[in-house]
Simulated scan of single mutants.
Amino acid sequence: MRPVIHILVIVFWVLSASQAICDVYSWTDENGIRHFSNVSSPYGKKATQIPESVSSVIDKSNFLVTKVFDGDTVQVQGRELEFRIRMVAIDAPETGGSKKNGQPYSQRAKEALTQLIQGKKVRLKQYGTGGYNRVLAEIFSQDVNINLVMVRRGLAEVYRGRLPESLDFGSYEKAEAAARRRRAGMWSLGKAYKSPKTWRKENPR
């Protein structure tokens, strides 16, 4: 009975009514973290495949934010799952990891996001799975869109890449334009500002 419950939980999680349904794979790594992928499971990992025919639903459950990695990536826990969220539509300054110096305002972005949601229950609006098998989502705390908050504060820019068609892209563009006008956060750097996307190209892992 327990495996069936797990499968139902996964189905409830990885699909969203706002996007096309596709085959999804789920597996647990050696650290006990549940991963999702719309491609396949990694070599040597036993995965549960969720077929395309499964009806999509919107997940309105609350999840606890257990860790903030940087200004746009967090880990959440709930419903017997623990996994990472890549905050959709935004791109925060890169921290650089343990071996490199990060971008200006990268630590401020991390600190701000930590203050906003660390240890709190949040609601997620999913948009599928992104790189490194992270769930793409908007994060809501007490009905406040935290993704937009980070952009409004000048601690993240609008993601310069492909975005889900169902996303309200206009609200993010307006938030960034307003932050630029106010020279909020990282926009105070003026010509010295460098997009996280550009920084990643110049500083490959």
Rank of each mutant, 00 (worst) to 15 (best):
F140P: 12
E138G: 00
V151I: 04
R134N: 07
K125W: 13
I117Q: 10
R182I: 14
N133I: 02
L124E: 08
G154L: 08
S166T: 09
V158L: 13
K120I: 00
R162G: 04
Y127Q: 12
R153A: 01
V122E: 07
R152W: 05
I139P: 12
A175S: 09
E165I: 14
R183C: 03
L148F: 10
R180K: 13
K121M: 11
F169V: 15
N147D: 10
Y132D: 08
G119P: 12
R123E: 05
Y172D: 11
G130K: 04
F169P: 10
L163N: 15
R181L: 02
L167D: 14
R183G: 01
A178E: 13
G128T: 13
R134A: 09
R160P: 07
E176K: 04
I117F: 08
F169A: 11
D168Q: 13
Y159N: 15
L136I: 11
G130A: 04
E138F: 13
A175P: 01
Q118M: 12
A156N: 06
R152I: 05
K120Q: 14
A109D: 05
R181Q: 12
N133V: 03
G130N: 11
T114M: 04
V158R: 10
K121E: 06
L167A: 02
L148I: 11
S171F: 12
L155Y: 03
Y132A: 03
L167K: 15
M150H: 06
N145I: 12
Y105L: 03
D143S: 11
R180Q: 15
K125E: 09
V122F: 01
V158F: 13
N133D: 09
A177E: 14
R153D: 02
G128A: 00
Q107R: 01
G161K: 15
E111F: 05
V151S: 08
R183V: 02
R162N: 13
I146M: 15
L163E: 14
S166H: 00
A179S: 03
V151T: 10
K120G: 06
E111I: 01
E165D: 01
Y132L: 06
R123D: 09
R123K: 15
A178K: 14
L167Y: 06
R153K: 09
